[in-house]
């Protein structure tokens, strides 16, 4: 479904991504794990067009995303939940969700999706008139995920969804990711919390300073000695 080939990204003269290739199949949860500065966020930003790569291909259902303008990508079925939620604080919860469906025009379908999102996140319905900036961190994460779901994506890119959340909320967020995947949406998950990411992912890639150093089945990686030492703290 999504195939990244020999991706190279530079920030000025510094090479942040040094030739990365990976693929995501339909229905999978794929985790990209690695420490701070490994290039995880850069990869997601490059896929959704916020950064242009120097080299490489990003094929999504056969089309090269590099040729599409960034604002067209979401309508192709690819939603991105950015790091730090990035909800629109001056808009209400409801208006934020409407922004998620910005590229869709059928009002009935949008309100159907809205009902689905409210069913998945009852808290958002309770707070629909509240300014997004006044929500707690956990609620903002729910809103960011709900907003992405409003575009009815085929694949959803999630950047550090557990960041800054209490353990109970982390648990909840990962349960939600699992259930989003169960209902048919492919997930590309970037996480520092390797243990949780590997526990829900089908396959995973381990990144170190812009390169993939390990890849494979998530369960196997969880038992890999080097992964255990470096990322799972065991």
């Amino acid at each position: 479904m999504l195939e990244v080939k020999d991706l190279q990204v530079y920030y000025g003269v510094i090479q942040a991504i040094k030739g990365i290739s990976f693929n995501v199949n339909e229905g999978e949860i794929i985790a990209l794990i690695g420490a701070n500065g490994a290039g995880k966020t850069t990869i997601l930003h490059t896929i959704t067009g916020l950064i242009s790569p120097k080299q490489g291909e990003i094929l999504y259902e056969g089309t090269d995303l590099r040729k599409a303008p960034a604002h067209k990508i979401v309508s192709m079925g690819l939603a991105h939940v950015p790091e730090g939620r990035r909800v629109f604080s001056q808009l209400t919860v409801y208006e934020n969700l409407l922004m998620g469906s910005y590229t869709r025009s059928d009002k009935n379908e949008i309100s159907d999706t809205l009902q689905h999102v409210f069913k998945r996140f009852p808290r958002l319905e309770e707070r629909r008139g509240q300014m997004a900036g006044t929500l707690s961190g956990g609620e903002q994460q729910m809103l960011a995920m709900g907003r992405a779901l409003m575009s009815k994506p085929k694949i959803i890119l999630m950047d550090e969804p557990s960041m800054g959340l209490s353990p109970i909320l982390v648990e909840e967020v990962f349960d939600i990711i699992k259930s989003i995947n169960k209902s048919g949406t492919t997930v590309l998950l970037v996480e520092q919390n390797a243990k949780k990411a590997l526990s829900i992912a089908h396959r995973a890639y381990v990144l170190e300073t812009g390169k993939i150093v390990l890849e494979g089945d998530a369960k196997e990686l969880m038992n890999d000695e080097s992964v255990k030492k470096a990322y799972l703290g065991e």
Partner: peptide, 10 residues
């Protein structure tokens, strides 16, 4: 950037 991710043509 977040607006672009929603599909807004800046």
């Amino acid at each position: 950037d977040a607006a672009v991710l929603m599909g807004v043509n800046v």
